[in-house]
């Protein structure tokens, strides 16, 4: 009896078509998981909004309050020198840093002959000169360097009969010595960037017959540059702040004017609020610019 039922069931089961009825030929298109509109809350640059709101508030305050507008009018005269020194010294530091960074990235190896080839030997000398420069300038306080440059080095040059077309306490001196100091820092930044480029890139360029300088200019530096933009931006902002050291040369930049005004009326709080505001406006603008540059250079690379 049991077996009959079983066999019936079995037959029944057999009658059921094995192939299920035809599926709708169009398979439903998989939709991406719906994203909550809240995603924009995550994408929004809240920090920029913060600075914009606070900035507007401060600007209004300066415009309305006669004391603040007076301070701002007198201190903002120094922005000119601050920016001149910052941009000038930074441009110089970029050039020096790139050159010395490349030199230090490729220590020379000896070839044939007693001195290993003339060019190799000259490169050896250059390599060590550059290293000495980086180690000295990197380890010296910038204030010391500026004062030494303006009041010891340049006068000594003059005494030795060298014609120097600017005064010791001038924007030119500030640019040269700040540029030298920052060049030593940027040298290491560029070296790090160059080392981040895979070795195979240089090998590929060289195997195509490109000379080493061509490989470095066309292949290595463009890739290294992209890597070092964040630290370069970092150092640019540090440069704006360090340009305040030119007050040691009695140059009337933002810091020096702030010091003078607060020294005469003892209103340190309000004067230095204005000084801080001016510096922050410049540095945050710098940050935004760096961020923009980073996004522009973000191409379809891995």
């Amino acid at each position: 009896m049991v077996s009959e039922v079983d066999s019936k069931r079995f037959r029944l089961a057999e009658d059921v078509p094995i192939v299920s009825p035809a599926q709708p030929s169009v398979t439903p298109v998989a939709k991406p998981r719906p994203v909550t509109p809240f995603v924009y809350v995550y994408r929004f640059p809240w920090w920029i909004l913060f600075f914009a709101v606070v900035g507007v508030f401060i600007v209004l305050n300066i415009a309305v309050d006669p004391k603040y507008s007076e301070y701002f009018r007198r201190i903002s005269v120094g922005i000119n020198i601050t920016l001149q020194v910052s941009f000038g010294a930074y441009a110089m530091a970029l050039a020096i840093g790139l050159f010395t960074g490349v030199v230090r990235s490729y220590p020379p190896k000896p070839g044939q002959g007693i001195i290993g080839g003339t060019i190799n030997f000259l490169r050896l000398i250059l390599y060590h000169l550059v290293t000495i420069y980086v180690e000295i300038l990197r380890g010296m306080p910038i204030a010391t360097l500026l004062v030494f440059g303006a009041f010891a080095f340049l006068p000594a040059l003059r005494q030795a009969g060298v014609e120097v077309p600017f005064r010791g306490t001038s924007v030119e001196t500030a640019i040269i010595f700040l540029g030298l100091a920052y060049g030593a820092f940027l040298s290491e930044v560029f070296r790090a960037g160059i080392q981040s480029v895979p070795k195979g890139q240089l090998e590929a360029a060289r195997s195509l017959g490109m000379k080493s300088y061509q490989s470095i200019i066309y292949i290595v530096i463009p890739q290294a540059f992209k890597v070092v933009i964040p630290p370069l931006g970092n150092d640019f902002i540090a440069m704006i702040k360090d340009s305040s050291l030119v007050m040691l040369l009695a140059l009337n930049d933002v810091s020096q004017l702030g010091k003078k005004i607060s020294g005469s009326n003892f209103d340190y709080v309000d004067v230095y609020l204005v000084v801080a505001f001016i510096y922050l406006s410049m540095t945050i603008t710098g940050s935004l610019f760096v961020k923009l540059l980073e996004q522009r250079l973000k191409t379809k690379e891995r």
Binding site: G200, Q201, A204, S207, G209, I219, Q223, R302
Partner: peptide, 17 residues
């Protein structure tokens, strides 16, 4: 020599930029 000898690498080594 390098002008006359082409080379293809395991990791391609194309210039990504």
């Amino acid at each position: 020599i390098r002008r006359e000898v082409g080379m293809v690498f395991q990791q391609f080594n194309l210039f990504p930029h």
